[in-house]
Design a protein around this nucleic acid. Structure first.
Lengths: 96, 96
DNA sequence: TATATTCTTCGACAGAGGTCGAACGAGGTG
DNA sequence: CACCTCGTTCGACCTCTGTCGAAGAATATA
């Protein structure tokens, strides 16, 4: 559960992470609701698949994870992302 | 060689098309140089692979192709893209 | 300690996708 | 017509990736 420095995340990595409908949905939830526990996402995949998607998002620098008891709380790295990829996340999120 | 209406292009499709380094490089060339012939891209893949990537870009609504003699001239669908996905292409292109 | 909850990891599988060379097709030129 | 150029399509290959269930790790609770 390690987080990459955004300086070493390349644009294709980020776009790939966002190009899956399940992951995009997760990112939208995080943008709307803020910090969320893994189990709080209403996705149509199994627990292990969800964990896989969250790992992809984390490794692409999109999210950060912190443990809280047995939960893992996920949130977007909005400030860092906007510094590394200005306006990108905002424009993605504003698309219907 | 048909072009989709941008209304039926979904955001994940667009992001997936942009998430490959070769394709992203092609898009940057088109943004910088305007209309280009297929053969004018300096990419590190074979002719057939290049053709494949151009097809992905076209089907994602990113580019349009028009024949001119034996050439195919490719260009970005900037206006339509900015209407369907406002500011997205611009923010992608401005990332280093 | 035993049990429950939450999430990750592992192993396996199927499908998608990037790659190439060879063959093909469309359009110009001799 | 023959030939050349540009690009597409086809078939094959291999890697990547999304998916699942089962097992495991970490933490809380009885």
């Amino acid at each position: 559960m390690t987080h990459p420095a955004l300086g070493q995340v390349e644009l294709p990595d980020l776009l790939h992470a966002l190009s899956d409908p399940v992951r995009l949905n997760i990112v939208r939830c995080l943008a709307r609701d803020g910090e969320c526990a893994c189990g709080s996402f209403s996705v149509s995949v199994s627990k292990s698949t969800l964990s896989h998607h969250l790992k992809v998002l984390r490794q692409a620098g999109l999210t950060q994870t912190r443990p809280d008891g047995t939960l893992r709380l996920i949130s977007l790295r909005r400030v860092e992302l906007d510094e590394r990829f200005p306006e990108l996340l905002e424009s993605v999120l504003s698309c219907r």
